[in-house]
Amino acid sequence: MVALIRTSLMLLLLFMILTGVLYPIAVTGIAHGVFPQQATGSIIVKNGKAVGSRLIGQQFDDPKYFWGRLSATSPYPYNGAASTGSNLGPTNPNLTAAAEGRIKALREAEPGNTSKIPVDLVTASGSGLDPHISPAAAEYQLHRVAMARGIDDAAVRALVAQHTQEKRLGIIGEPVVNVLALNIALDER
């Protein structure tokens, strides 16, 4: 029994050193050598200032920007320090209320737009930090953004296309538009 306890403790200690210290240090070392940008959060730097991460969405509600998914983080949306989904059940009245709020805001920002609203624009993402929307959701907002900026739709559409990621190998995943990267590109125009 004493021998078994001793073996347990020693083995645990060795595994801690190997898998808990050496392994993550080795991965970190190689990762920083080969993929330094990705390993440190895919930070976007503009004029020497960090303005966001390519992978973390930001909150937009100004008509001149593309808007992203709803975010359920608290106390404010897209709080990077506390990821969470809404966890609202399918029959929860708060779920429909949140969608109705978004629909109202979208309609008010662009009263002339009567097309159907893509579902990803009225639902909250799982992480609360989703950096993407669907191409349909970008197309829905395109004219509003162009109007607010006084430029024509075609110019905005070209920018959207530049920031669209297609399905990998034509099969895997969904086509998506990176909202933050697109909005930064619009501001730089």
Partner: peptide
Amino acid sequence: LQPGGNMEGKEA
């Protein structure tokens, strides 16, 4: 152009 369906709690 879009996944459609029940997108609540899902990532784009």
